[in-house]
Design a protein around this nucleic acid. Structure first.
Length: 783
DNA sequence: TTGTCGCGGGG
DNA sequence: GTGTACGCGACAA
């Protein structure tokens, strides 16, 4: 059985170093492998297959193998050509149903399961990508287009930056002014030659599928330049349907496509960024430059050129654009490596192409293929999808126990709560009779611990360490999606809402238990969400006391459910569920939730909040008023820079469209552009807008600072939008006094020296509501 | 005013 | 081939 489980997880064919697979419906496949740096091409044959519910009347060209056990998809059928097989199945189904079925997708889900040819090949051979290969052995090339605009029908490519697999960067430039067909065609042709000469296994860029590939494809098509980028087959990019693709030029615009190139894997670092942020939620934006900066990948003095100006700059100062484009490909390479290791490791388990795993969701894209391969490997029939019995899916627990300000905060949370509960209580899909999902989760959790240990033992910064960390990341991704798979409704074959609900029910139970036990040990509960809780501990406690109490509570939880001490903070402002500010013991402020951080919020608001909350945490309520008054005074003296009051906006409507509707509807951003004296703008342009005196919409130009903002508008915004984030932190009278109009100070005069932030307790433990105001400086010191 | 849809990115 | 957030702005009803 152990051997079977290893096969389920890793496949079984030992062939090392596969870097790309191309398979055709006629049963031909090409496998490219790397061995000691050399590229090896193998032309092989495979027999196309699918699973069907009924194998009667398929004719002599189709062989039939019946799988064991219950399950709708019981027949493993094969033919020499996928088209022959598909036609036989459609013919038989048409006869049975009494109407013409033209396409497999018109059949009910449980009638047939047909995978793309590459996946058929990988599933039946037990092969996977990259066995025994390290990430840095892959030959990766990055390229980046510089274009005169974003519309491939009108705009042109004038520069292509290429970073080859050895890290050398080449800047290809169009001749002359970059405005001729011949020059652009020659540029594309040189790019194609360059790629062929470099012969990369992987081609990468940020937004590769959203911009560079479709743009390149369109330009090459218009200029009739053959895009012979592949390692085999005719020139041209192949389109495949993809949810996150772009609308194709011809045909049905609702069917989106992505492009593929035979023998090379196309990797878009934007997919990795999205996937990463889905879990981490720490990125300010998904743009290349912002992400590179965030991860410290950007060079200190990187050349910056706003997108819309690159072409103009190039015509005046080519060297600047060369530096700019070189940085872009370097950052794309670094980003792809930083975030791509997990997917690389995943491709050593899941029988799909690397490029498909890079963009797919975990549940349907990774767990499902693993389950399908496991059942086929075990000769077992696959169950069909089960329609919902109407049971609603119940979610996680979220409790706000107290709002306001507290001190000496401890965060405790359960590591991988849902998979742990699945393992602990053996909760798996009812129809997974081989228990593959639980076996995979068990294996992954254990092997991940081993990989983490090996990674820690390897030298920091080494390729070895990178590899182990990548394996660990991939395993974590799959483990965490096991629950998502259960809860995925009708999307996944083994989805089981009852099992999913049992997992969340146990999760709520565990959260309630740990809240009660923490409270019983003298802490004040603040907020609990899904798998973690914030508490305030008594003043006298040391960090050792905190850790001891968390360990005591951890010991009460079920086997495999591990409560961890996640961190400690000097203070917390609890505003609303999932909206709070924390102060580290070192002094740094952490703001969470939309109430405290929004990309669109005017910068002065966040500055105000940071200053005010810092005073609040120091117990200095009078200081909060000082900050408020100082901000108002600064506005009235126009001492605040104009940029601080601007909001960022994107112009999404073409001028003609806006002018047409302008009679009935004014929009600040466009009015600001028009008021600035311009009548034209380009779609996608980013602007900084604000309200100038008498409410006039205004545009702020780069490096400009006219200080003509509408003072009272921004004073109101300060009071109504930003100050209200502190409403839970002060007693109503104090709040009114702190944010009273400075002009009426005498009427409301109230000494603030004695005022203190408050904490209002809303519930003593899960389900037990109360409302008690704690007026003193709370750290849960006495109970 | 309220509800639904689509975007986030790329030059 | 099948995707999942969350918050926001644009647009329609």
């Amino acid at each position: 059985m152990a051997a079977a489980i290893a096969d389920w997880l890793w496949g079984w064919d030992p062939t090392p170093g596969i870097v790309s697979v191309a398979a055709e419906p006629d049963g031909r496949a090409i496998v490219w492998r790397r061995s000691a740096g050399e590229l090896i091409r193998e032309d092989v044959r495979f027999r196309p297959w699918m699973l069907v519910a009924d194998a009667a009347d398929l004719g002599p060209a189709v062989s039939v193998h019946e799988l064991a056990g219950p399950g709708a998809l019981r027949f493993f059928v094969r033919a020499d050509h996928l088209d022959v097989l598909t036609a036989a199945v459609l013919r038989a189904e048409s006869r049975r149903r009494g109407y013409a079925v033209r396409h497999l997708r018109d059949l009910p889900a449980d009638t047939a399961l047909a995978l793309p040819p590459e996946e058929q090949y990988l599933v039946t051979t037990g092969r996977v990508y990259f066995r025994g290969l390290s990430y840095d052995e892959l030959h990766r090339l990055q390229f980046d287009l510089e274009t005169t605009g974003l519309d491939a029908d009108r705009d042109r490519i004038f520069v292509i930056a290429v970073r080859d697999p050895h890290g050398r960067t080449t800047i290809l430039e169009a001749d002359g002014a970059g405005d001729s067909d011949a020059g652009e065609a020659a540029l594309i042709a040189r790019f194609v030659d360059h790629v062929r000469a470099s012969d990369p296994d992987v081609i990468e860029n940020h937004n590769l599928h959203g911009f560079d590939l479709p743009f390149l494809e369109r330009r090459a098509q218009q200029l009739r330049v053959p895009l012979a980028l592949g390692r085999a087959g005719p020139p041209g990019l192949r389109a495949r349907p993809a949810r996150r693709g772009v609308a194709p030029r011809t045909g049905d615009a609702t069917r989106k496509v992505r492009y593929t190139i035979v023998g090379r894997e196309l990797i878009d670092s934007m997919d990795a960024v999205r996937r990463h942020d889905f879990a981490a939620h720490d990125l300010p934006s998904y743009g290349l430059k912002a992400v590179a900066r965030h991860y410290g990948l950007a060079e200190a003095e990187r050349e910056e050129i706003p997108g819309a100006q690159v072409y103009d700059v190039w015509r005046r100062d080519r060297a600047r654009v060369v530096r700019y484009a070189s940085s872009d490909v370097a950052e794309a390479a670094a980003l792809a490596r930083l975030l791509g290791g997990g997917t690389f490791a995943l491709a050593q388990m899941v029988p799909r192409r690397y490029e498909r795993l890079a963009e797919t969701g975990a549940a349907t894209g990774m767990v499902d293929p693993l389950l399908v391969r496991a059942y086929i490997r075990s000769g077992a029939a696959l169950p069909g999808h089960e329609p919902s019995d109407g049971t609603p899916h119940s979610g996680a627990a979220l409790h706000l126990f107290a709002a306001g300000v507290a001190h000496r905060i401890v965060k405790a949370d359960v590591a991988s709560l849902y998979p742990s509960l699945m393992r602990s209580y053996r909760i798996g899909p009812a129809r997974d009779r081989l228990d593959v999902l639980l076996a995979l989760v068990d294996q992954l959790v254990e092997q991940r611990l081993a990989a983490k240990a090996l990674g820690k033992a390897a030298p920091p910064g080494s390729g070895e360490r990178f590899g182990y960390e990548a394996v660990s990341a991939a395993m974590k991704l799959v483990v965490n999606s096991a629950y998502g798979y259960l809860a995925a409704g009708s999307l996944t074959r083994f989805a089981d809402v009852h099992a999913a609900n049992e997992v969340t029910r146990r999760g709520r139970e565990v959260l309630a238990l740990l809240c009660r036990e923490l409270a019983a040990r003298g802490t004040t509960l603040l907020e609990a969400d899904t798998d973690g809780v914030y508490v305030a501990v008594p003043q006298a406690w040391t960090e050792a006391d905190e850790r001891r109490v968390v360990a005591e509570v951890a010991a009460l939880l079920p086997d495999k459910v591990q409560l961890e001490y996640d961190g400690r903070y000097a203070a917390m402002l609890s505003h609303e569920p999932k909206n709070y500010a924390l102060q580290r013991y070192g002094g740094g402020l952490v703001m969470r939730g939309v109430a405290f951080r929004s990309s669109r919020a005017e910068p002065f608001g966040e500055t105000f909040l940071r200053d005010a909350i810092t005073r609040l945490f120091a117990g200095d309520v009078a200081g909060v008023r000082d900050v408020y008054l100082a901000t108002i005074t600064a506005f009235r003296q126009r001492a605040i820079a104009t940029r601080e009051v601007t909001a960022r906006a994107r112009l999404t409507k073409p001028p003609a469209e806006y002018y047409a509707a302008r009679e009935s509807r004014h929009e600040l951003s466009y009015e600001a552009v028009i008021a600035s004296g311009r009548t034209e703008w380009t779609v996608g342009e980013r602007v900084h807008v604000y309200r100038a005196v008498r409410g006039r919409p205004a545009l702020l130009a780069e490096d400009d600072d006219p200080r003509d903002y509408d003072i009272e508008h921004y004073v109101r915004l300060l009071r109504d939008t930003f100050a209200t984030r502190l409403v839970r932190a002060l007693a109503p009278d104090d709040y009114a006094a702190v944010f009273a109009d400075p002009d009426q100070l005498s009427l409301f005069a109230r000494p603030l020296d004695a005022a203190r932030p408050i904490l209002t307790r809303l519930a003593s433990e899960p389900g037990v509501e109360l409302e008690v105001r704690v007026d003193h400086d709370v750290g849960g010191e006495s109970r």
